[in-house]
């Protein structure tokens, strides 16, 4: 076993077991805690896959932002210590059976498909230009992958030259930015306290 595999199994066990515990546990606070371990394990997998910027974004945005938001939601909607919203046994059985069938389908598809076995190039996190590539792609300065095409299939030598797709992501980046701004304004509008109207209604 190489170091890569050992690290993968550690991170995968952390992620998978925590994900299962999120489903199994009935206490919503514990589910939030298990979700924290799932997200942290996923960030470890990203670092393992030499995607350091995505891993850092996962830690900062997901673990530091989204999960804190969820925990605040749990606290603000707490219904007393002993109120549990339990699920019926019949629903459990049906859901788990459907989930096992779905996982069997997905795992079979992932296992049987002959994936493109291109050698993953050596990634040295200290010297890689990974973040620079992502930044260039997001600002649209150049084509993200000059040799790549939209479908990812290698271009045959005899085929006519493809039109020059600019596979950079300036426009999606801007759309995502404006989308996030609009969504946060909308969330603040939706969740605002409506005290004034209630006081006006009551004599």
């Amino acid at each position: 076993m190489t170091l890569f595999e050992i690290l993968f199994w550690i991170a995968a066990a952390l992620t998978g077991l925590s994900a299962i515990m999120v489903v199994v546990t009935q206490n919503i606070v514990r589910a939030a805690a298990w979700l924290l371990f799932t997200l942290a394990g996923t960030a470890g997998l990203y670092f393992l896959l030499a995607s350091d910027f995505v891993g850092a974004a996962q830690l900062i945005v997901y673990v530091g932002g989204t999960l804190v938001l969820v925990v605040f939601g749990v606290m603000l909607t707490a219904q007393g210590p002993f109120v549990n919203l339990r699920t019926g046994a019949g629903e459990w059985v049906f859901s788990v059976l459907a989930g096992i069938a779905l996982y069997a389908t997905l795992a079979t598809a992932a296992w049987v498909t002959a994936w493109d076995k291109s050698e993953p190039q050596e990634q040295d996190a200290a010297r890689s230009s990974n973040i620079a590539q992502i930044g260039m792609a997001l600002t649209g300065i150049r084509e993200a992958t000059p040799e790549g095409s939209i479908t990812g299939m290698p271009i045959k030598p005899g085929s006519p030259p493809r039109s020059r797709w600019r596979t950079a992501y300036l426009l999606p980046f801007e759309i995502v930015s404006v989308h996030l701004l609009v969504v946060l304004i909308g969330a603040a509008y939706l969740a605002r306290a409506k005290r004034r109207k209630a006081e006006g209604a009551t004599p």
């Binding site: 995607s51 945005v61 989204t66 992502i134 993200a144 040799e147 790549g148 990812g152 992501y169 995502v176």
Partner: peptide
Amino acid sequence: YYNPTFRVEGQVFALFVIVMAA
């Protein structure tokens, strides 16, 4: 990681998904 053609694309889409999730 495993398909060098998608070296940037996969990470950019993952970043978009993270922002969308937030």
